[in-house]
Design a protein around this nucleic acid. Structure first.
Lengths: 188, 188
DNA sequence: CTGTTTTATGCAACTTGTTGCATAAGGCTG
DNA sequence: CAGCCTTATGCAACAAGTTGCATAAAACAG
């Protein structure tokens, strides 16, 4: 249950409306904790009821009107509590690796294309991270920026790993396809 | 929606009962697609109704009795179809990176312990993967084993990355803690 | 042969995340 | 100013995953 804490973190970094949060969850925060606007609006409602955030006063009351949210002391306390507690790590689910395992059983048809597609996606993501690093993290900075830079370095490291692994996997799969056509269950 | 396909793959590798599947989802398959016994039994029921698998005949009918499942031709066809189609990649959610970001805002209390805990977990997982590699993948083999080895290499690469990153993150955080105590919002 | 543990299957309720759609304000275009 | 697009918020239904518990047979201990 980390979505509320992702939202609290984002709102502490900068008070925002639901839509602004959604935009930020498509970029920075969303690089490691994604959420749709539906989740965000629902969670904002819960956080407000719980007294963790409040809507900043606005003229118009509701729909079609921006509503800014700011974190209340209770919300900061909750985030502090969460951040100093042990996290249960969520189980891994990686569809691409599952697919490779399935391909070992039912054949490699279309596998090379999928690997190429993923390779392109990860290369693009890596380039984006590297651009952010060059833009936002030039000189040495305080602990806040050092921690954020560590997070970014995790992203860069992960994408670098995937790019390397996918390139190697693609080479191997092409090699297998050359030796033996990738029909379903080729040799038996 | 990949759980049914994970189960079909596992059953094609070896027909199994629900509990045997559960055990395998705690090991090999579960390294990249985890599932609880609840999910597995429920999904087995659906796959049987859909005509993708069938229960092998047994003496006793139901509870407390092992029920072996085998994949039917329709099930193999479904897995083949799934494996040759494009996968929508699931959004990323990594609680540890989120926590680092939160720590940048509410302070680093307990962060070093959490990093050490993760480091130990990833080191253990890496050792397990390397042991499997040494045991199961000695000599060169057919395309099936080459694909499975690629999957294992992904696991090894990922764990290696995490071990390296966590070690570096820990060093940095300890350095920050030495310069400035890790209270909530230390310097402002 | 009785009670406890282990193996094995499964239901029900709940939480989390996704998809599709509805509503409404404001700006733009002819 | 009528119609359309974009921005902004939100409901409802659904799908996926989790948690807690129930049931029952077999194995084991005394």
């Amino acid at each position: 249950m980390s979505l509320p804490h992702a939202i609290l973190t984002a709102l502490l970094e900068k008070p925002s409306s639901g839509l602004e949060l959604t935009r930020r969850f498509d970029r920075s925060i969303g690089y490691f904790w994604s959420a749709t606007h539906q989740q965000i609006y629902r969670e904002l409602g819960k956080l407000e009821v719980a007294g963790f955030i409040r809507a900043l006063p606005s003229d118009q009351p509701s729909r079609g009107q921006k509503k800014q949210f700011a974190v209340l002391p209770a919300g900061r306390a909750e985030l502090t509590r969460w951040a100093s507690a042990e996290q249960e790590s969520k189980p891994i689910r990686d569809a691409l690796l599952l697919r490779l395992r399935a391909s070992a059983v039912v054949g490699r048809a279309g596998l090379d294309e999928e690997l190429r597609r993923h390779l392109a996606l990860h290369r693009r993501q890596l380039a984006e991270y590297q651009e952010i690093e060059g833009r936002d993290f030039g000189a040495a900075a305080g602990p806040e920026d050092r921690l954020r830079r560590l997070v970014l370095r995790a992203g860069i490291g992960l994408e670098t790993f995937w790019v390397d692994w996918l390139a190697q996997a693609l080479t191997e799969v092409e090699d297998m396809d050359a030796a033996e056509p990738p029909q379903d269950r080729p040799g038996g």
